[in-house]
Design a protein around this nucleic acid. Sequence first.
DNA 1: ATCATTTTGAGAGAGCTTATCAATTTCAAT
DNA 2: ATTGAAATTGATAAGCTCTCTCAAAATGAT
Lengths: 144, 144
Amino acid sequence: MANTHVKEMQALKEHLGKHQLKLTRQRELILSAFLRQEHITAEAMYHQLAKSDPHLGLATIYRTLNLFCDAGLAQARHFGSQTKYDNVSHKGHHDHLICTGCEKIVEFENEEIERLQEEVATKNGFTINTHRLELYGLCSRCRH
Amino acid sequence: MANTHVKEMQALKEHLGKHQLKLTRQRELILSAFLRQEHITAEAMYHQLAKSDPHLGLATIYRTLNLFCDAGLAQARHFGSQTKYDNVSHKGHHDHLICTGCEKIVEFENEEIERLQEEVATKNGFTINTHRLELYGLCSRCRH
DNA sequence: ATCATTTTGAGAGAGCTTATCAATTTCAAT
DNA sequence: ATTGAAATTGATAAGCTCTCTCAAAATGAT
Ligand SMILES: [Mn+2]
Ligand SMILES: [Mn+2]
Ligand SMILES: [Zn+2]
Ligand SMILES: [Zn+2]
């Protein structure tokens, strides 16, 4: 436990330093909990943390998760009607396969698709900054 | 004007008939306005129609656009933070290129991408029902 | 024309996220 | 270690988008 998430903590501190923001007990707590998840909603985070810290406000969760987004540790993703914060601290760009039966989320990368996206954009005179690709369906479990 | 949107009107009537729903002045009005657009928000539709029909309620717009979705004439698409109703009455599946500068939306289809999506899904044991692919960037105009 | 059924409009309400603000905490400078 | 300006927090109000409620009006099968 001692040296877990040291790199991410470092990255956060760096962002805080650059923007004259402060390191608080809440930010440490929320970071440590956030890094244990892959995809989580603000609400779920709130309930999870309420067990150990019943006075932590929901607004603080939102503010802090958005801070993590600014710091490049998280990304807000809108899956269906839910907004989930994607822990991207230890991985690069990826897209998602989402099971509408059990909510399971599988991450994938396909550079051929990425290449074709660029091709489509170029063909239309566009320069891509970001994209969103989500495949919704049923996983093998839920199909049976 | 006489025989514009006859086919779509027909499709709507068919859906209404099958579900014991009624054809109203509002539904005709909203359909005719909707078919003149490619992608529009409920709010924009509301303001647009308010000019000629100031008493048309926003709830009716939402209800009716959702009805069009059920009837297969429209599809609700969540672009960024906006929900736009996509007029799909005269076209099949397609994805979108969106300019973050001027809000321009270009539709495209790429069957190679579609094929690769299936491949990714299969590789992970999934069966795809729907997908969402949006490319965000700048169009040639906005780049300069 | 009748009348059961559906639809409408206005506003209330739900769900999610951000804004407000007084009290508290942080941290750089003593 | 103490001070104090600046940032943060928690509680709650507010904002936004969309759906629900319900009495009044419209529809359409008979
Ligand atoms: Mn992910
Ligand atoms: Mn479209
Ligand atoms: Zn599943
Ligand atoms: Zn543009």
